[in-house]
């Protein structure tokens, strides 16, 4: 039976985040929190392996007490166990301190595969997953858009801008997932009830995590944020497949509709 650890982060739903027109900062008030989309794809990949081959799926998150909700969501989707790393001592962490902390927590769990998302939509660094692999001393395959388990290895298709790579990696390993990897399943109503009424979220505080003080929280963070700025928001794209002439007509109609021409 495979052991899979999935790291998930609770993030503000950036589709719902608006900018304060005066200050240019994000208005986070009233914005719902969601499971980071890339992480959710990692969880779905783990659950598919569980469905197909059998596996124990453990989800791990670091964050404040409210992050309990994303772990319950993961349980409601079908994860078996959930762990929340939560302590003020871990607060203010940059990617180094975060990856040190989570890797130390994960090292307490059995794992053949560790999934993380490629990046979180509230920070977009894409560093925590690969750094964790370094801390754990296991190979890392990033940007996975397809995964297969073959014997003691994974075959992973990695996405790049204009190409892709297919690599074979021996387990244990860490994979960073892209939303393109799959379409995550919905929770089930019964799964939600079970997640809240029968399953537990184990909370790990500072003493539970075997990591050096010099590598955690704000003090253990070698980097500082100099400036943060919102990503230029791009409208939701639309893919249209029809013959060339119909496509041209469609495009023309859209341009007219938007008063571009």
């Amino acid at each position: 039976m495979l052991n899979i650890v999935v790291c998930v982060k609770q993030v503000p739903d950036t589709n719902e985040v608006r900018l304060d027109p005066k200050t240019g900062t994000l208005i986070r008030e009233g914005v719902p929190s969601i499971m980071n989309p890339d992480d959710k794809a990692g969880l779905e990949a783990a659950l598919r392996i569980k469905d197909e081959l059998g596996a124990v799926v453990r989800v791990v998150s670091m964050g404040p007490a409210q992050a309990d909700a994303v772990l319950r969501e993961a349980l409601a989707m079908g994860a078996d166990e959930a762990y929340l790393i939560s302590d003020r001592a871990f607060g203010g962490a940059d990617t180094w301190a975060t990856s040190s902390t989570i890797a130390a927590a994960v090292s307490k769990l059995p794992y053949d595969i560790v999934f993380t998302g490629r990046q979180a939509i509230d920070g977009d660094t894409a560093q925590v997953g690969p750094q964790m692999a370094e801390h754990l001393g296991i190979p890392n395959v990033s940007y996975a858009e397809e995964i297969r388990v073959v014997g003691d290895s994974l075959i992973v298709k990695r996405q790049f801008e204009n190409s892709y790579q297919v690599v074979r990696v021996k387990m244990p390993c860490l994979v960073t997932a892209l939303t393109e990897l799959n379409r995550p399943r919905y929770m089930t109503p019964g799964g939600i009830f079970e997640a809240y009424r029968e399953k537990q979220v184990t909370v790990w505080t500072r003493p539970d995590v075997p990591v050096d003080d010099s590598n955690i929280g704000l003090k253990g963070s070698p980097t500082r944020v100099k400036e943060s700025f919102p990503k230029a928001l791009k409208g939701k794209g639309e893919v249209v497949t029809m013959d060339a002439e119909a496509e041209a007509d469609y495009l023309l109609a859209k341009l007219v509709e938007r008063h571009v021409i």
Binding site: Y186, P189, G190, I192, F193, E194
Partner: peptide
Amino acid sequence: RYGFMGIPIPREFGGQGCDSLTYVMC
């Protein structure tokens, strides 16, 4: 597929084992 067709029915009978309020919200 997602268990929306047996929300208030106990799990031993194939349902989701939730309550009437959950079903009503659905």
